[in-house]
Structure formats: structure tokens, C-alpha cells
């Protein structure tokens, strides 16, 4: 495997609320190489989105990165002054958010806001700028990109808007793109199109893609590697095929079993009992042990996530 473009070690992002410290991300290790897709999977409250926001330096108060290192192409991002981060953001590392209507400015034409994103990092003559924007739209499968440049976001469908957001993220040819649930708000047929195009873009441009989602099926279609998060930590990671075909953490197994498809129609789904724990009052030890059928006394100490491509944080792996 080539050297990773993004390397995260021991990342911890905590939120200092009046009710207590919320350890949304508590010791996450990740690595993504050029031309690869890492699927970061978890349910709501698992810390997957906060991980994404931490990587790009967009954690708002009362949250803050309290420990760990984020290296992009060997350069440390944690502790970088805001101006230096701003110069990297959009240029070397970009993000696509869940709701394109929140990303795009509703009162500016698509072309205008794309030009602003370009201007933030490069000074191109007008004509070259326009060509670059048009090509970016074309690359993400937007028909008649010239006309779309003059459109306002509300004139586009949800799928088109998300394509514009993706085109904007790719505009400055970043090394790394973080996509936070980019297809969750879209219809299945449009989701299929976008996943398909992202696959092609990663292959063509060699960007590294971190795809944050709760949808195991999308990850199965798109990702090379998978990291599963639970209560702020990665509990299992490995090549997508291995993790999906032979999950070793009871939580991953439970998640996969929860999706209809294995059990014949009408049969009871094997369900994970209980619900995700509140991050504020996490008991010591494995956060999953209260819902886990394999838990023992050993689980009151936190299991380690061993180094290596395929690993699992569990005292009693499957």
C-alpha cells in the first residue's frame, strides 16, 4: 500500500458543555491513501461526523480537539494557526456536506459561488476561471454545465445541488475529500448515480476520499476500506470486503444483521438490544458491553485496537 495522504493518530475531540464533557471522538486512528475510499460507518452519535469536522478544522465551541495528530501529506494540521488552516481548506482538503441547500448560498448564482471558491486559492483570468468551473460541473455528470453556471441553487434539483457541491469541493483539485453523508438526503436512484460518479472520480483523479455514512450498503458499493465507529472510537477496521463478509466485532455483526436481506422476508431480524449510550455518562470499559451478548467481566477494561490493516477492538471477537 502506498503511503497514506491522510494519517490520523489518537484524535480526540471533546465538547465542554455545562452538563459535562462529551467525548464525541475519543482516540481515533485513520489512514487514507491516494485513490482510495475509506468508509467511516456509524450510527448517529457515534462521532463519525465530528471526526470529519475535526479533520478539516471546523469544530465549533464548546468543542475542541484535545489530543492527537492529523497529518495531511506529512504536514501536521492540529495546532495550525487559523490562517494556515484556511489556506489548506478547500485547496488540499475539502468537504461535502449532507445537505447541499445549506452548503450553497441561495442568493448567488452557481457560477458566482464557484468562482469565489476558486479565487480563494488561485488567481485566474476570468475566462480560465469560467472554463475551470464549467469543466468541474461536467466532471460530476451535470448536463449542459454552461447553463447551470447561471442558475440559482433553488432552480436545481436535490441531486443536481449535491453534484454542484461535489464539483465545488473538487474545484481546487484537493488531495483529500471528506464527504459527510452526501447521499442520505437523496432518492435511491440519484444516490446510485452519485455513488457511481464518485467511484469514477476517485479512479480518474486519484484523490483520497473519506465517506462518512450510516448506510452499510453504500459503503459496500463504494469503499475500499471500512472503519466502524461506536461511541467515539473505532471498533473495527479493515478492507471493506473482509469487514462486511466476516465482521469480527459483535457490534459490526449486529449492524449487518439489522439490515434486511439475510433473513428470509417476514422473519425476525437479529436485533441489537438497547440503544446507543449517552456519550456524557459512558461507563469505563467497552462502550458496547451493555448491548453485547458476549460481554464478560474483562469488558470493564477498554480493549485496544491493535495496529494493522485488519483489526478489531474487542476482548471477545467473533
Amino acid at each position: 500500500m502506498t503511503a497514506p495522504i491522510l494519517e490520523v493518530r489518537g484524535l480526540a475531540t471533546h465538547f465542554f458543555t455545562r452538563a459535562g464533557i462529551v467525548k464525541a471522538v475519543d482516540g481515533v486512528d485513520l489512514a487514507v491513501a491516494r485513490g482510495r475510499v475509506l468508509g467511516l460507518v456509524g450510527e448517529s452519535g457515534s462521532g463519525k461526523s465530528v471526526t470529519g469536522f475535526s479533520l478539516i478544522g471546523l469544530v465549533d465551541a464548546p468543542g475542541r480537539i484535545v489530543a492527537g495528530s492529523i497529518r495531511l501529506d506529512g504536514r501536521e494540521l492540529v495546532g495550525l494557526p487559523p490562517a494556515a488552516l484556511r489556506a489548506l481548506r478547500g485547496r488540499r482538503i475539502a468537504m461535502v456536506f449532507q445537505d447541499p441547500m445549506m452548503t450553497l448560498n441561495p442568493v448567488l448564482r452557481v457560477g458566482t459561488q464557484m468562482a469565489m471558491a476558486l479565487d480563494a486559492h488561485a488567481h485566474l483570468p476570468r475566462a480560465a476561471r469560467r472554463i475551470r468551473c464549467r469543466d468541474a460541473l461536467g466532471r460530476v455528470g451535470i448536463p449542459s454545465p454552461d447553463e447551470r453556471l447561471a442558475a440559482y441553487p433553488h432552480q436545481l434539483s436535490g441531486g443536481m445541488r449535491q453534484r454542484v457541491a461535489i464539483a465545488m469541493a473538487l474545484l481546487n483539485e484537493p488531495d483529500m475529500v471528506i464527504a459527510d453523508e452526501p447521499t442520505t438526503a437523496l432518492d435511491v436512484s440519484i444516490q446510485g448515480q452519485i455513488v457511481h460518479e464518485m467511484q469514477r472520480l476517485v479512479a480518474d483523479t486519484g484523490i483520497a476520499l473519506l465517506w462518512i455514512t450510516h448506510d452499510l450498503a453504500v459503503v459496500s458499493a463504494l469503499a475500499d476500506d471500512i472503519a466502524v465507529m461506536y461511541a467515539g472510537r473505532i471498533v473495527e477496521r479493515g478492507p471493506a470486503r473482509d469487514v462486511l463478509a466476516e465482521p469480527r466485532h459483535p457490534y459490526t455483526r449486529g449492524l449487518l444483521d439489522s439490515v434486511p436481506g439475510e433473513v428470509p422476508p417476514g422473519g425476525r431480524l437479529p436485533q441489537i438490544p438497547g440503544s446507543t449510550p449517552a456519550l456524557r455518562e459512558l461507563p469505563p470499559g467497552c462502550a458496547f458491553r451493555g448491548r453485547c451478548g458476549r460481554a464478560s467481566a474483562a469488558c470493564t477494561t477498554m480493549p485496544e485496537l491493535p495496529a494493522g490493516e485488519r483489526s478489531v477492538r474487542c476482548h471477545h471477537p467473533l
Binding site: S220, A245, G261
Partner: peptide, 18 residues
């Protein structure tokens, strides 16, 4: 167009056509 989870025994990535 619905992506499906590649389960045990599936070969390669599940092909889906949008």
C-alpha cells in the same frame, strides 16, 4: 440502483446500475 451489502460468498463488489 439500490446498492446492496456484499455478504459472505459474494464475489467482488456488488454491481449496481444507476
Amino acid at each position: 440502483s439500490v446498492p446492496r451489502i456484499a455478504r459472505r460468498g459474494d464475489i467482488g463488489r456488488h454491481a449496481f446500475r444507476p
